[in-house]
Amino acid sequence: MKRLTIDLRPDEYVLSRLPGGSSLPALPTGSGFVSVTSTPDEISLVTPAGHEPAGAKVDGGWRLLTVRGPLEFTLTGIMASLAGSLAAAGVSLFAVSTFDTDHILVKQTDVQRAVHALREAGHEVHA
C-alpha cells in the first residue's frame, strides 16, 4: 500500500440522523467538513459540533482524519488499509468518501490510538 499523508482536523464533529424524506437544514458549508448522505430510510449528516439539525438523532465527540488528495479512482486498497489498521487497534470508524479523497471519523477518546495505529502502518499523520 502506498504511504498516505493524513491530516487530523482540530475540530469536533457530530453525526446526525434524520428520517428519510426530511427537508435538509441549512448547512455550514465553507466552515469545516460537511457531508450529507440520503437514502429512502434516512439522511445522515456529518457537521462541525454545534451545527446539528434540531430534532435529529445525534452522536457527538468525533474527530476527522482526512487523506490528502486528490486520489485517483484507479487506486485500490486505501480504505481497506486505513480501516484494517484501525480495526487491529480496536478503533471504530465512520468513513466518508468524496470525489477527491477519503475521510475517517473516530471518537475523540480513540484519537491517540488511531494516530498511533496509522503511523505504525506506515502512514504520515499530521496532528
Rank of each mutant, 00 (worst) to 15 (best):
E52W: 01
E52M: 00
E52I: 02
E52N: 00
E52G: 00
P53A: 10
P53K: 04
P53Y: 09
P53E: 09
A54V: 11
A54G: 10
A54L: 09
A54S: 13
G55E: 05
G55W: 08
G55D: 04
G55F: 05
G55K: 07
G55T: 04
G55Y: 09
G55L: 05
A56T: 03
A56W: 03
A56C: 06
A56Y: 02
K57T: 09
K57E: 12
K57G: 00
K57L: 07
V58Q: 01
V58I: 14
V58G: 01
V58D: 01
D59I: 14
G60I: 05
G60L: 03
G60N: 05
G60D: 04
G61A: 04
G61Q: 02
G61E: 03
G61V: 05
W62H: 05
W62C: 05
R63H: 11
R63Y: 03
R63E: 03
R63V: 05
R63A: 03
R63G: 00
L64C: 09
L64K: 01
L64G: 01
L64P: 00
L65F: 08
L65C: 07
L65M: 12
L65E: 01
L65N: 02
T66S: 15
T66E: 12
T66Y: 03
T66R: 15
V67D: 01
V67T: 07
V67W: 01
R68N: 11
R68Q: 14
R68L: 13
G69T: 10
G69L: 06
G69R: 06
G69D: 08
P70H: 11
P70L: 10
L71W: 07
L71G: 09
L71H: 08
E72M: 12
E72V: 11
E72Q: 14
E72D: 15
F73M: 11
F73C: 05
F73S: 10
T74F: 13
T74G: 14
L75D: 02
T76F: 12
T76M: 13
T76K: 13
T76D: 04
G77W: 11
G77N: 09
G77E: 06
G77L: 08
G77V: 07
I78P: 02
I78M: 09
I78D: 04
M79N: 01
M79G: 00
A80K: 13
A80G: 15
A80L: 14
A80Y: 13
S81R: 10
S81V: 05
S81Q: 13
S81D: 14
